[in-house]
Design a protein around this nucleic acid. Structure first.
Length: 511
RNA sequence: GCCGGAGUAGCUCAGUUGGUCAGAGCAGCGGAAUCAUAAUCCGCGUGUCGGGGGUUCAAGUCCCUCCUCCGGCACCA
């Protein structure tokens, strides 16, 4: 039994959960469930990023304290994840005392290692918006992108992390480990980014301007600025650091027994740089191991424009849950998007994918259960069930190869292909014809046993992406639990009482 | 501007190291069957594999060039 630790980013608590958050989180959930099914001890981490200026502002607008706003938003996120069937093991918040202490310990370690210095941050500040904007945000005209007001270049005291010192080590890490950043296109982009000299990273802000943050341990007039605070959550949750211990025993350099390093950090491609550059160099600076893999996925686009409220083109697949159910939406999101690439959402494609689910898989389950009920009084015959042995073994192998390689779409296609093969098996065997002739009884037994067994395999393969429907299928097959992969080979379904029930994926009348 | 990716049947896309690679699914047409959610199964594709040039006995598959589209180029989760 292995161990598997995976994370989503912690989501910024200033706005409502949306498809971008949901996709990452569902992706993580599918991987977490897959690894549990493979027998791994899984730690699946998600949470919220509670600090920062934006939260300070939004809270003020709503007449709340920052923490009250964060409490409210954290609940929203957790409720959203409940609705989507997310099985996270831990929901971390950066306002947790433990996390704040770990951030402090990490900062002290970086400081003691000589990687932090005081300097001045120079940036484009908007007096109207009371905040800095990036070069990209202000554009060539150099106006604040929100109100169009003026921005001025100002300086303020900040602490900086000597990120530049780690540039060569980071490049070496990426070049020697081709699978460390996936997909390859993101890896290339990061390498391209590192082609230019790496600057040092500003990690604090004056408390006078932003009070809602974690104080710098040796200078209470400064608070941590986003990166150290947010990214460190991955280490906090791992248990590698004990901030209460004396400085040389906290776990840096010689990590405490823990889940660190993370097996995979998942995120959208928009924050690849923070995860593939800032975070690894911070870890290097603190003498901690690097995560084993960094996976940046693509975006859902409508037509050819990025999904955006401001564009008014939000057509949200999540809204389809009302009519089609959560599992169907999860299926669509995982099956349709090539893991890592962008994908375009259209209602037509959703319906195609739903029909696949309904007609190929749902119908296979329904016709199989119905035949067992009709021909064998609802009991799976005690007969050899190896009818689709070759196809099943191939499908399971292809599925596991694909999911191990983070090609989820491919794995689920392989599972669906097995369902197609099983439908073909039904046509070839013609159970209805066998049932008419007394001498067909044995063959009919073998056929039904094979189909029942195949459904168990399919329930196992589909469970990570469609946990509720897979569990329901398992119940109808008389199983207490859906088997793990290692249990599939010795699986015996004979003698089980099955229940037909209503279709797993019913026909949905539109309009 | 610099760097990178993509352009394959009506649609969405597969196509390792060059030689049954010209494919799958969906849509369409024809047929079979009736256990099933009018679901299933079988059969049918004359596609300049973006244009042009080159290497090779042989190229979507390598090289050059052109066209089109997309992504990245830091302190924004």
């Amino acid at each position: 039994m292995g161990s598997f630790y995976l994370s989503t980013p912690i989501y910024y608590a200033s706005g409502e959960p949306h498809l971008g958050h949901a996709y990452t989180t569902i992706l993580a959930d599918v991987l977490a469930r897959y690894h549990r099914r493979a027998g791994d001890d899984v730690l699946f981490l998600t949470g919220t990023d509670d600090h920062g200026q934006k939260i300070q502002e939004v809270a003020e607008e709503q007449g709340l304290t920052p923490l009250e706003l964060c409490d409210r938003m954290a609940e929203r996120f957790q409720a959203a994840w409940d609705d989507l069937g997310i099985s996270n093991d831990r929901f971390i918040r950066t306002t947790e005392p433990e996390h704040k202490a770990v951030v402090g310990a990490l900062l002290e370690r970086l400081y003691d290692n000589g990687f932090i210095y005081e300097s001045e941050y120079v940036g484009w500040y908007s007096v109207g918006q009371e905040r800095y904007f990036t070069e990209k945000e202000i554009g060539p005209d150099r106006v604040d992108p929100i109100a169009g007001g003026p921005v001025t270049k100002i300086r303020e005291k900040n602490y900086f992390f000597k990120m530049s010192l780690f540039q060569d080590r980071l490049i070496e890490q990426i070049e020697k480990n081709p699978e460390w950043i996936v997909p390859a296109t993101r890896r290339n982009e990061v390498l391209g980014f590192l082609n230019q000299p790496l600057e040092d990273l500003s990690i604090s802000r004056p408390r006078s301007r932003i009070h809602w943050g974690i104080p710098i341990p040796w200078d209470p007039d400064q608070v941590t600025y986003v990166w150290v605070d947010a990214l460190t959550n991955y280490v906090t949750a791992s248990g590698a650091i004990d901030p209460e211990a004396t400085k040389d025993r906290r776990g840096f350099g010689d990590p405490l027994p823990s889940r660190w390093p993370c097996d995979v950090h998942l995120m959208g491609k928009d924050i690849i740089t923070t995860h593939a550059v800032y975070w690894p160099t911070l870890l290097m600076g603190a003498n901690l191991a690097l995560p084993r893999k960094i996976l940046a996925h693509g975006w859902w686009v409508v037509g050819d424009t990025k999904m955006s409220k401001s564009l008014g083109n939000v057509v949200d697949p999540l809204a389809l849950r009302d009519r089609f159910g959560t599992d169907a939406v999860r299926w669509y999101l995982m099956r349709e998007m090539v893991t890592g690439q962008d994908a375009s959402y259209t209602p037509e494609r959703f319906l195609t994918r739903y029909d696949e689910l309904r007609n190929i898989f749902g119908n296979l389950a329904h016709r199989t259960l119905s035949m067992i009920k009709r021909y064998r009084a609802g009991t799976v015959p005690a007969a050899p069930s190896g009818g689709l042995a070759v196809e099943t073994a191939a499908a399971v192998a292809a599925y596991r190869r694909a999911l191990d390689g983070y090609r989820l779409h491919e794995g689920f296609a392989a599972a669906m292909d097995l369902a197609r093969a099983a439908n073909g098996f039904v046509e070839t065997q013609e159970p209805w014809a066998l049932a008419r002739e007394p001498e067909g009884a044995d063959e009919l037994d073998r056929t039904l046993a094979t189909l029942a067994r195949t459904l168990v395999v399919l329930a196992c393969l589909f469970e990570p992406v469609m946990p509720a429907r897979a569990a329901e299928l398992g119940r109808r097959l008389g199983l207490a639990n859906i088997p793990l992969f290692e249990e599939l080979d010795g699986m015996d379904v004979s003698g089980r009482a099955v229940r037909v029930g209503t279709p797993l994926f019913p026909r949905v009348d539109l309009g």
